[in-house]
Computed example of a mutant assay.
Amino acid sequence: MATIESDEAALQGQAEIWRFMFSFADSMALKSAVELRIADIIHSHGGAITLSQIASCIDGGSGASSPDITTLARIMRFLVRRKIFTVHHPADGGDPVYDLTHSSRWLLHGSEQTLAPMILMENHPLLTAPWHCFSRCVKEGGIAFKKAHGREIWDLASENPEFNRLFNDGMACTAKIVTRAILSGYKEGLSSIGSLVDVGGGTGSLISEIVKAYPHIKGFNFDLQHVVSAAPPYDGVCHIGGDMFQAIPNADAVIMKVRY
């Protein structure tokens, strides 16, 4: 009996290792769904649609061939298994139809509450490369991102406008998500201040929403110069570039949102 239990435990342990080994597939499949705008396609249709209908709406770019239905089917099967999408098989034997779930609604690009930019950011090769440097960090010390790219993330962003935009968009979408909680949970505090500086505020989406809800507040969005240079104008918000480790603008209160 003990031998049987030991064998079962060993098999379970092996299964867990296989699961961890291929867990990256979850994020890669999710990224592909965002890049292909699958959730947007289903949402714009207004209801469940077939695989062929999804494929017909995928933009392959100029000169590109038709989407590979077989590959798309595999991705959708995987994401259905992960409960990102649902699938329904009609009783009359018609083609299966796919629909959104509460999870896939977070993949919509045009939604006010979306994680699509963050998914694209976190799964970009520049941000996945540092994960391969963890063992080096243990052996040598140092920062994984710098090990992978030879410089800090802020330096790379200042030199790479495309990555800077990707990073800023990712930060902005998470700021929108937490803004509702801040506005509803800190009403008394926000009502009592005249000025507020968001340190590391990115392109200013968080501070702009606070100022919109509390117009009496004078808002300052403070971040590195290459970040605020890409920030859009907001009523009641002043964008200021600088290094928070050197000095920050004067205000009645400071707000800082961590990366996630």
Rank of each mutant, 00 (worst) to 15 (best):
E188F: 01
G170W: 01
L166R: 06
I182G: 10
P90M: 05
V97Q: 00
L183D: 00
G110F: 08
L183C: 00
A144L: 10
A116Q: 01
G94M: 00
W131H: 01
A172F: 03
G202C: 08
H89K: 07
H102L: 15
G202R: 07
Y214W: 07
G141K: 04
D99S: 14
F220T: 12
P161E: 14
I207T: 14
V178L: 05
G219P: 09
H102T: 15
I182Q: 13
K187H: 03
I143E: 08
I177K: 06
C133L: 04
T174I: 06
G219S: 07
I177P: 11
F222G: 06
F134H: 01
I193P: 03
G204P: 06
F167R: 04
S191T: 10
S191D: 08
H102R: 14
G93S: 04
N221A: 11
F145A: 13
V211N: 03
R81A: 12
A157Q: 14
P117Q: 15
P96N: 10
E162T: 02
N168E: 07
K146D: 09
T203P: 00
I143D: 09
I182Y: 09
F220N: 02
E112H: 11
I217T: 04
V87A: 04
F163N: 02
V97I: 01
L183M: 00
L107N: 01
G204V: 11
H102N: 14
S191Y: 01
S205W: 09
D169G: 03
D99C: 07
